[in-house]
Every structure is written in structure tokens, then in C-alpha cells.
Amino acid sequence: EETVVIALYDYQTNDPQELALRRNEEYCLLDSSEIHWWRVQDRNGHEGYVPSSYLVEKS
């Protein structure tokens, strides 16, 4: 079962390993094994790492 997370803030990045976030957008959580950086996928299928503190699990 996939976990959906919501971005609390915008996040901009130039790092190809990371993914930009848009506030209030939903993302699919792929990997939360790292404490500070979670791997997520956006609705267009793009994947990357984002700061975990910018996300909240959708209830």
C-alpha cells in the first residue's frame, strides 16, 4: 500500500538527485529509510529526494 504525503512548503532545487516540491501537492512516498531525506514521486512520475521535514503524511 502506497503512502501519500503532502508538501507543507515549496522546495526549489538544482540538484538532479532531488525533486522540487509545491506546497499542498501530493506525492507518493517511495523511501523513508533516511531520517532527513525521503524519496518521493510526483504525479508526473518524476522521482527525487526531498527534505522530510517539508512533508506530512496524508491522513
Rank of each mutant, 00 (worst) to 15 (best):
D15S: 15
V50E: 00
G48M: 02
G45A: 05
L8F: 05
V40R: 01
E47V: 10
Q41H: 10
S33P: 03
E34D: 13
T3W: 03
R39K: 11
I6K: 11
E47C: 11
C28Q: 08
W38V: 05
Q41E: 09
Q41I: 09
C28G: 11
A7F: 01
R22M: 14
Y27V: 03
Q41F: 04
T3H: 07
I6M: 07
S59F: 07
I35Q: 12
A20E: 13
E57M: 06
E26I: 04
T3D: 09
C28D: 12
L55H: 01
Q17H: 06
E34H: 13
Y27A: 01
D10E: 05
E18Y: 09
W37L: 13
V5S: 02
S59R: 15
S59Q: 06
S53E: 09
R39S: 05
R39N: 04
R23Q: 14
L19N: 01
R22N: 10
Y49G: 04
D42R: 03
C28V: 13
G45E: 05
L30F: 03
V5T: 04
N24K: 09
R39A: 04
L29M: 05
I35N: 14
D42S: 07
N44A: 14
S52N: 07
Y9R: 15
T3V: 09
N44K: 11
E2H: 06
W37H: 14
D10R: 01
S33C: 11
S53D: 15
K58V: 11
Y11E: 00
K58A: 08
K58M: 07
L19E: 00
Y49L: 15
V5G: 02
I35R: 15
E1D: 08
V5H: 07
Y9W: 08
N24H: 06
A20M: 10
E1C: 04
Y54R: 04
D10P: 03
L21C: 04
D31H: 04
T13P: 15
P51D: 04
A7P: 03
N44D: 13
E26V: 06
A20F: 14
E18N: 11
A7M: 01
W37V: 14
D42V: 01
L29T: 02
L8N: 08
H46M: 10
S53P: 08
Y27P: 00
N24W: 05
A20C: 13
L30Y: 02
E2S: 08
V5M: 10
D10S: 06
A20V: 13
E1F: 06
H36M: 06
V56W: 06
L30N: 05
C28L: 13
W38F: 07
Y11M: 03
L29H: 02
Q12K: 08
S33M: 07
L21H: 03
R39L: 14
L19Q: 04
N24L: 10
V56H: 06
D15I: 07
